[in-house]
Design a protein around this nucleic acid. Structure first.
Ligand SMILES: [Mn+2]
Ligand SMILES: [Mn+2]
Ligand SMILES: [Zn+2]
Ligand SMILES: [Zn+2]
Lengths: 136, 136
DNA sequence: ATCCTACGATGGACAGAGTCTAAGTCAAGA
DNA sequence: TCTTGACTTAGACTCTGTCCATCGTAGGAT
């Protein structure tokens, strides 16, 4: 996480307390918080941080490739700090919990040429759904 | 499409001009309209149809399994009348066009047991992304 | 053919998620 | 320490979707 801040400062990022707090909140595994959840947690450490700044900072982290935007339901987007290891998501239909998963093989290979309609396909996103142990 | 209306009438649906128009707008292949797009097209045929009715009717069609809700971007949900043939989606990152595709094999099989975290996995949703011929 | 009524349609208020702006603040280089 | 442009802030605004009270009508009953 501190190396994230180093990396960003190297790219000319002005290091403010707000940005530091947002980065801290996003630290960890299987973290998939909404912007408002990030804001709520950031507020505990820095009471006056604004919603706009959280949105701005998250947007910048996404642009810089340090955070991934995930929208598994039709609701709020979730922000995922696990950006450097490609992965997919397993979502509980009961409670909404999201886990990072790594399927075998290359999901792109499953789409035959005659199903590509002339597209240059470069990316694939897979969402597995089911019930977690607590909800089953 | 008329068999759709028959099926629904058989299930006790009251057949109103509004519902008929929404069903007509959703007819076709590779149709993935937002609720407001459905409303705009429905308005051309039936000028006084309301937004609420479009949302209600779409919601009912989804509950009845006749239409599928798709959210490929973080924006508005899209409504897909191709509900009886399981399929996945190929989305153009340039213009947003969505095509129905059928990948080979069973995507569920690619998730090994040690990546299931005790979940009962029952469903998988795949979104391929790339550039369509016009945007490339 | 007409009547009844419960189901459906309507418009507008409301809510959640996100964007934008104008004005104030401050990190960091000179 | 001074300066300045980048950053933060509050709140207005947009977009998507839901809810509600009231009105209208599809379709069965007579
Ligand atoms: Mn993740
Ligand atoms: Mn489709
Ligand atoms: Zn669960
Ligand atoms: Zn395109």
């Amino acid at each position: 996480m501190s190396d994230l801040l180093e990396r960003l400062r190297g790219r000319g990022w002005r290091l403010t307390s707000q940005r530091r707090v947002v980065a801290e909140v996003l630290d960890g595994d299987h973290v998939h918080l909404t912007a408002d959840e990030v804001h709520a947690r950031a507020t505990q450490r820095l009471p006056e941080i604004s919603r706009a700044t959280v949105y701005n900072t998250l947007g910048e982290l996404v642009s810089l490739g340090e955070v991934i935007e995930v929208s598994t339901d039709g609701r709020a987007k979730r922000y995922d700090p696990n950006a450097h290891q490609p992965h997919q998501h397993l979502v509980c239909s009961g409670c909404g919990t999201i886990r990072d998963v790594r399927p075998l093989g290359d999901p792109l290979a499953d789409l035959p040429a005659d199903q590509r309609f002339g597209f240059t396909v470069s990316e694939v996103e897979v969402t597995y759904r089911g019930l977690c142990p607590s909800c089953a």
